[in-house]
């Protein structure tokens, strides 16, 4: 019998040792740039596979009014601290202008009324936070494609960067998408939500809806849309505040 006990104690010691090694090893690996680079190779793989499977035009599921979340929680910043936005908010965004510039033929400064005068798309969609929760809401606004057509993208334009009025610890929030998502029929500049003007907490006066990706791509408090040929050289160079600050994936379809 003693043989069994020796074997057992050996095994349990081995298992505990392996567990400790594994945990310590995982944390060490987690901090290793080469390992992180290797894990990060999965992102273009996911993006490529999803783009192949989804196709350009496939729509995110839409829901009925009966399926709306009773309460649509806010998250991220809920009250920008920049003076310019605060002054605009105080006057009901009457003087607010959405700038569209960068690699466009005709830079624009569009008042809210101009966005409201464009053909509108209304959609009831599910908002999926990277944290795991979901809320269903109704969004209305012009298609981003309509605004881009007014400005006329230059051939070199590859990305659209959304510059926002909110900041995290002094760093401006920004996000970016490529042209496939920019011209997707459900990609809209939402100024209405659940039948009322977009609330401050949800990104007034205008937030981006890019329905096939996670919540952090849906930039709130959009002040300026910049067409660019590359994302490098802008802030941390990864195409978004959370991508730069925490290492979230730029392609957030998963």
């Amino acid at each position: 019998m003693s043989g069994v006990f020796t074997r057992r104690s050996l095994l349990s010691a081995g298992a505990a040792g392996a567990g400790g090694l594994l945990l310590g090893g995982c944390d060490r690996l987690d901090g290793d740039p080469a390992w992180r680079h290797l894990l990060g190779l999965a992102e273009p793989l996911h993006m490529g596979a999803q783009r192949l499977l989804i196709g350009r035009g496939a729509l995110a599921p839409e829901f009925t009014a009966a399926q709306l979340s009773p309460v649509f929680r806010t998250n991220g910043n809920t009250q920008p601290d920049t003076g310019e936005w605060q002054a605009q908010a105080a006057s009901g965004f009457a003087q607010w202008r959405l700038l569209i510039d960068g690699l466009v033929r005709r830079p624009l400064a569009l008042p809210l009324a101009a966005l409201q005068a464009l053909p509108q798309r209304s959609q009831i969609t599910r908002h999926d936070c990277v944290e795991g929760w979901s809320a269903i809401g109704q969004w209305q606004g012009p298609r981003l494609a309509a605004v881009l057509d007014m400005a006329g993208l230059q051939p070199a334009a590859r990305y659209l960067v959304f510059h926002c009025a909110d900041r995290f610890g002094g760093s401006p929030y920004y996000e970016s998408i490529d042209l496939i998502d920019a011209y997707h029929p459900q990609t809209i500049l939402a100024w209405r939500m659940n039948g009322a003007p977009l609330a401050i907490g949800h990104g007034a006066p205008v937030r981006l809806r890019v329905e096939r990706q996670l919540g952090y791509k849906h930039a709130k408090y959009v002040m300026r849309i910049e067409a660019r040929d590359s994302l490098s050289g802008l802030y941390g160079g990864k195409g978004g505040y959370w991508e730069d600050a925490a290492g979230y994936q730029w392609y957030a379809g998963i």
């Binding site: 945990l23 995982c26 944390d27 987690d30 992180r36 290797l38 894990l39 990060g40 190779l41 999965a42 992102e43 996911h46 990277v130 944290e131 959370w242 925490a246 290492g247 979230y248 994936q249 998963i254």
Partner: peptide, 16 residues
């Protein structure tokens, strides 16, 4: 994984 809170790092591991 990792042992400290990091949603971004956990997603990096999980999706790879």
């Amino acid at each position: 994984i990792p042992s400290h809170y990091s949603l971004a790092d956990a997603r990096l591991w999980h999706f790879a």
